[in-house]
Amino acid sequence: MVIVKRKTLTLAERLYLPEILRGLSITFRKMFQPKVTRQYPEEPLPTNEVTRGQPRLRELTEGHLACVSCGLCEAACPAYAITIDGQETDRFIEREPERFEIDMLRCILCGFCEEACPKEAIFMSTELELAGFTRESFKYGIDKLKRSTEELAPRMEYIKRINERW
């Protein structure tokens, strides 16, 4: 058991006014210290490979996604933001997404999709900004989600690195 002794206050403290003045002097000094606010649109947030921005799909070869529409991200998504329909292709990996839709209004940027992906196809990008005028415009299809491997390379490296820890 911890016994906390109540401090007996001095007369100055009991009078309250000196303490108020001390408090006032602190706030007054703070007024002249440098500000910590980030002026957001002019000073964007710094991002690096640890940044968990909006999920994006990796383009494996020209025009083709690494995604095979296995549906694991869809199943892992706690917000039910992902919808995938698969289709057949003639390429070696026979399956590719016909529709890959992420409802960005539902997405909570948790990164479970990235973790669930067995094909290194979906990664959390550094893209953080999201704005639109209609709900429909937040349903991102393949055209809006596709990113080149180079763009996602730092994040891929990072994920590989942390996966090696296990």
Binding site: S69, E74, G86, E94
Partner: peptide, 9 residues
């Protein structure tokens, strides 16, 4: 049914 749906859906 090929690639039509994931069975858990």
């Amino acid at each position: 049914f090929r690639f039509q749906a994931r069975v858990w859906n």
